[in-house]
Computed example of a mutant assay.
Amino acid sequence: MIIKHNPKDLFPPYRNYSHAIEVRDNSRLLIISGLNGYLSDGQTMPESFEEQGELIWQHIGTILRSAEMDYQDVISIRTYLSDPSFDEANVRLRMKYMKTHQPASTVICCTLLETKWKLEVEVMAAK
């Protein structure tokens, strides 16, 4: 069982997320490592933020399906952006794949391991 915690005495969540997610009972927990926008050869990566982001979210979908889950089972997203200017595009991508689903979410702006990486995304899902 998945329970959202958005207490009324806390500021309301904005931009499609929940303050906290609780997992109860006999649930399965899937933890997906930070993914980058590599093509299937593991070496080639598109230049643009949007193309890298689309590939990452497609990779997340592939992993979720391999665990017999889907995007609606995501309980937490941690996104690392190489530049804060990518935030709006990142929100659009997250909303495209999450639709009305509101997992816990954190966005961190930092220097990523490779300069060509525009973002890296970690996901946790439970069912």
Rank of each mutant, 00 (worst) to 15 (best):
W57C: 00
K118R: 13
I31K: 04
Q102V: 01
V123T: 11
C109G: 00
K8F: 05
I77G: 06
S18D: 14
W117K: 08
S82C: 04
Q102S: 13
L93P: 04
R15T: 00
Y80L: 12
D9H: 14
Q58V: 09
K96L: 08
F86Y: 15
N36P: 00
E47T: 10
I77H: 06
N6H: 08
R15N: 00
Q43T: 14
S66D: 14
P46C: 12
D83Q: 11
M124S: 11
C110W: 11
E54Y: 07
Q72F: 02
D87Q: 14
N6P: 08
Y17P: 00
Y80E: 06
C109D: 01
S40T: 06
P84Q: 09
M124D: 02
Y17E: 08
A126E: 09
T115Y: 03
S105V: 10
P103D: 03
V121E: 09
Q43M: 10
D87E: 14
V107T: 15
I2N: 03
H19G: 07
G34D: 05
K118M: 07
F11P: 15
S85N: 07
H101E: 07
Q43A: 10
I75H: 01
W117G: 01
S27T: 12
S48D: 05
N90A: 06
D73L: 03
K8A: 13
N6K: 10
E88N: 14
I108L: 11
P7R: 08
L30A: 11
D87S: 13
Y97F: 11
Y38L: 11
V121S: 07
S27L: 03
A89W: 01
G61V: 12
G37F: 06
N36T: 13
M98D: 02
T115K: 09
L35P: 01
L119C: 15
S40P: 04
R78I: 15
V74G: 01
I108K: 03
P13Y: 00
R78G: 12
S40H: 08
P13N: 02
D41I: 07
W57Q: 00
K99H: 06
G34W: 03
R24Y: 05
F49N: 06
L119Q: 13
E114D: 06
K116D: 10
D70A: 10
H101F: 05
A89R: 14
E120F: 01
Y17N: 08
E50Q: 12
K8R: 07
H101A: 04
L119I: 12
M95L: 07
V23Y: 02
T79I: 12
I56Q: 14
P84E: 08
R94E: 01
S76I: 01
E22C: 14
R92G: 02
R92V: 05
S33K: 07
P103M: 02
H19R: 10
D41F: 02
V121H: 08
C109E: 02
E47S: 12
P7E: 05
M124N: 05
R15C: 00
Y14D: 04
E47W: 01
S48Y: 06
S48N: 05
M95N: 12
S18N: 12
K118F: 06
A67S: 08
T111A: 12
